[in-house]
């Protein structure tokens, strides 16, 4: 399979005074092919935004490799980044700060073309107009300022800004999280349509598993910088193999009152107040996991293939066809579930 983007065993660290550095991203690997969408799912601190920043070259990588079109892009020169941005673009979460409030949006869109050889003014105006149409906005809007648009419209402009150079891969960092529900649907549909029309690939980052499932081919579930589970979106969503994925799915309330009430009893509560630092040798989910045993604290679980094209990082994944936890095989549970 020809891949567009491959991330291999990526590690990103942030220096901390007088302590070992914080591993924001640890041993993360995934790949995106043409016309594919890979979703990164996780809560705050999962490292998903850091991964996006590292791919874009905004944050340095401590270890691992990132290749685009087969070429390594970590530590790429400024010039190389410039050329890369013709193929690799980004749409951010916050439609309110992703556009310079002091400039009309036409100028902001035109500016993206600058690093790739400034085409003549006529051509620029034409491309701006056509890209605005493509995202469903009036071309005459090019002269207006960001604060004259709604949140959903600004997000469309942000998508237009990413599209105008004709990229092959767009990183979408929580693109619909700040939008109202009715507008979310519009933007998600737009992203799907563009993928279909232009053959785009997406790296779709979100904390909302339902949204990710809706738009992604494959899903990578992250917790504290490590991959917990990865696999086809539908499989992971419907048959989660990792305790964390299950917790995520259990926690997200579904808009169905009867179903939601039934789920109350099924959930386990086991979150300590101060989980403390994660030791590099243990599974990061140990303090909160209802199924944790001593082994989890001593050794990082490796990513294993379940056979369904799903990778799971859990020592006990084979036991989880049935519901939890009475300590099978006499192993002592580390966290007692609440009565």
């Amino acid at each position: 399979m020809s891949e567009l983007l491959r991330v291999e065993r990526l590690r990103v660290e942030y220096p901390v005074r007088r302590r070992p550095p914080l591993r924001a991203v640890d041993d993360v690997s995934f790949a995106i092919g043409p016309r594919e969408t890979v979703g990164l799912v996780g809560e705050s601190g999962s490292g998903k935004t850091t991964i996006a920043s590292t791919v874009l070259g905004l944050v340095p990588a401590a270890a691992g490799a990132i290749t685009f079109d087969g070429h390594d892009i970590i530590g790429a020169s400024r010039d190389r980044r410039r050329r890369l941005s013709a193929d690799l673009q980004v749409v951010f979460q916050d439609p309110y700060s992703s556009l310079n409030p002091a400039r009309p949006i036409g100028k902001t869109l035109a500016e993206t073309l600058r690093p790739h050889g400034a085409p003549p003014k006529q051509e620029v105006a034409g491309r701006v107009a056509s890209i605005l149409e493509r995202v469903g906005l009036d071309p005459a809007a090019a002269n207006r300022y960001p604060n004259q648009f709604s949140g959903g419209q600004r997000q469309r402009i942000a998508i237009a800004r990413a599209l105008i150079v004709g990229p092959r891969l767009i990183i979408c960092d929580e693109p619909v999280s700040s939008l109202d529900l009715s507008v979310q649907a519009q933007v998600l549909n737009l992203l799907r349509r563009l993928q279909h029309e232009l053959g785009l690939s997406y790296l779709f980052i979100s904390h909302d598993l339902a949204v990710v499932r809706h738009i992604s081919t494959r899903v990578v579930v992250l917790y504290r910088g490590r991959v917990m589970e990865a696999g086809p979106a539908a499989v992971v969503y419907n048959h989660p193999a990792h305790p964390y994925t299950r917790a995520l799915l259990q926690s997200a309330p579904v808009p169905n009152p009867k179903l939601q009430r039934a789920r109350h009893t099924a959930r386990q509560r086991s979150n300590p107040d101060f989980p403390g630092a994660v030791k590099p040798e243990s599974c990061p989910f140990t303090p909160r996991c209802s199924w944790a045993v001593d082994l989890c604290r001593e050794r990082q679980p490796p990513l294993e293939n379940t056979g369904d094209d799903v990778l799971v990082a859990c020592h006990r994944w084979r036991e989880f066809a049935a519901p939890p936890p009475t300590g099978t095989n006499g192993t002592k549970l580390v966290n007692r579930p609440r009565p």
Binding site: R81, V90, D94, T112, V165
Partner: peptide, 17 residues
């Protein structure tokens, strides 16, 4: 830290610009 600056950096625009 504003996102539009990050977007500009990601687009490869020069620091001076």
């Amino acid at each position: 830290e504003e996102l539009y600056v990050k977007a500009a950096e990601a687009s490869g625009l020069s620091r001076t610009y």
